[in-house]
Design a protein around this nucleic acid. Structure first.
Lengths: 190, 190
DNA sequence: AGTCCGATGACAGTGACTGACATCAGTGGT
DNA sequence: ACCACTGATGTCAGTCACTGTCATCGGACT
């Protein structure tokens, strides 16, 4: 038993999510997470760099999907439209809201987790900017377009999660992007 | 001597900046910072919540200036122009680049400090969105406009710091905002 | 059976951060 | 001058995140 049970990472992530939900992030020790997963504290830190990281296991996959979609968008597409393609691509990965709601509730309850989430978004933004640069987009346009895309993603994701009625996330993302385009439109009304 | 020396906060901030620059953030202990400031570790934590915070003393002032400018912009102004007024206002606060270059070099050298910097930006963004809402801007426009403003600030600040020739920061901010407007412009070229 | 390797356990240690209590400097009242 | 009061500081013990090191175990391969 114990040793050599498969999927140690997943068990740790599951245990952490449960415990953070039950008692809160700060009231949970890493030793407790490891114990619930049938492992030791030392082994926890061999799978996750710190106490936060266990909540962000899938963020790498998301980033990769986004970047790939941006990179593979037709060269004729404007940068902002390549980013839109990236948003469309990642939207496919989000299915049932329940999971994400539970997860976001845990993150919303703790400043340390929110801080780490911002880092993940920043990492995505940097990776997207990089993909845009490889498409020939110059600075500072690449960084600004990537930041705009992440802003749309953040807002769209939040809207999708908190909406009372179930909606298509890709639809929400498109609307959010349109909203951004509207508020940054050149002409000053009035 | 020792006790009751004035400006404990400032001495701690100065000591921290020096030590982080000399040996690096991770190679510096809070006890060492406190000692150089003529204080104890315990007193450090009475002035700053954690080891990072000592680097971000002035961020609150910056946020207040930005928010005030947004709030006081003429009601006839579009949201994005109120944010532009905020950018203009904070630009006044940045004088010599040397200070900021040293500071940003320290931050760039450590992930924990970068993470905290993102939190400060997020706090500014939330405060700006709040000011926009008080101007009657609805969601998600308020959040998107605020995020766009922060993106412009980040990019503009970076450009200003890294430019080879000395330039007016308010000018750089205006150009960055124009660039954002350009990349988010509706029409797809080609 | 013997050998090797990667994942885990055990243990000691550092440093960030906190709670509780004592102590000191300056202030104001008498 | 004396004394109470307040707020900033020092002291000390303790928790917990995180790390380095070495022993140990399970499985694969020969």
């Amino acid at each position: 038993m114990g040793r050599w049970e498969p999927n140690a990472c997943g068990r740790l992530a599951q245990a952490a999510l449960e415990l953070f939900g039950e008692r809160g992030y700060e009231q949970t020790t890493v030793a407790e997470i490891a114990k619930r997963a049938g492992l030791t504290e030392r082994t926890y830190f061999r799978h996750y760099a710190d106490k936060c990281e266990v909540m962000f296991g899938k963020s790498g996959v998301l980033q990769e999907q986004f970047v790939t979609a941006v990179a593979e968008a037709p060269q004729s597409m404007a940068p902002i439209d390549a980013v839109a393609a990236g948003l469309e691509a990642v939207a496919q990965a989000f299915a049932d809201r329940r999971e994400y709601r539970q997860r976001q509730a845990v993150i919303a309850a703790n400043a340390e987790l929110q801080e780490r989430e911002l880092t993940k978004y920043a990492s995505m933004s940097a990776a997207i900017a990089d993909a845009l640069r490889r498409r020939g987009v110059a600075e500072p346009s690449a960084t600004l377009t990537a930041e705009a895309g992440i802003a749309v993603f953040k807002v769209g994701f939040q809207l999708w999660l908190s909406a009372s009625e179930e909606r298509e996330i890709s639809q929400v993302m498109r609307e959010s992007l349109d909203e951004l385009k509207a508020v940054t439109a050149r002409g000053v009304p009035g």
